[in-house]
């Protein structure tokens, strides 16, 4: 419902911009434009994409992916996950009001303390990439849970591979 309203506002706005009506003063469209920009940070991309849906909430968007996965004892973002990180970086650079927390996790191999450090290195690696991709430092925070909050608890690779990851957790 809310999205629909924003869409209508945007469509009206575009119409107004392109309209020939000479009586319309700049002040009238300026007000909704400013408020639209403030309440819907996705304006710019929405205009370009001709859609008003926040891509973060679009299940078909690449942004729907919120986890980066790693091989054992590795903290560098793998090639397969780079487009995902890049997309989030682009999103954050366009939506400066959004904040994201990078949460590094590890499988249980290694000591708890070593894994805490490795998880931090993983989270910081993603954070660095997001910064390089245009996100502001203030939008980002990184933490590590090491092996303390496993998603899967088995002692085998199928569990471990799920636990070796950095989650991108957007603030609500």
């Amino acid at each position: 419902m809310k999205k629909l309203v924003i869409s209508i506002v945007l469509v009206n706005l575009l119409a107004a911009c392109a309209s020939q009506k000479p009586h319309e003063t700049t002040a009238v469209p300026a007000a909704p434009a400013a408020s639209a920009a403030a309440t819907a940070p996705a304006t710019a991309s929405a205009v370009a994409a001709k859609t008003a849906v926040d891509p973060l909430n679009d299940p078909t968007s690449i942004l729907a992916g919120r986890s980066v996965y790693y091989p054992f004892d590795v903290a560098a973002v793998q090639d397969a996950d780079k487009p995902l990180v890049q997309a989030h970086a682009a999103y954050l650079s366009k939506n400066t009001a959004r904040n994201v927390r990078l949460e590094g996790n590890c499988d249980e191999r290694g000591s708890n303390e070593y894994n805490l450090a490795l998880g931090q290195r993983r989270a910081d690696g993603v954070m660095k990439m997001l910064e390089l991709g245009g996100a502001k430092t203030g939008q980002l925070d990184s933490v590590s849970y090491g092996e303390e909050k496993p998603k899967a608890t088995g002692h085998e690779e199928s569990s471990w591979s799920q636990n070796r990851r950095t989650d991108l957790n957007y603030a609500k």
């Binding site: 303390e113 805490l116 450090a117 998880g119 931090q120 910081d124 925070d141 990184s142 933490v143 590590s144």
Partner: peptide
């Protein structure tokens, strides 16, 4: 109790 190290990132070991 007191938090003696609570900087950004991880404080541990």
């Amino acid at each position: 109790r007191k938090a003696v190290a609570n900087f950004r990132g991880s404080n541990s070991a």
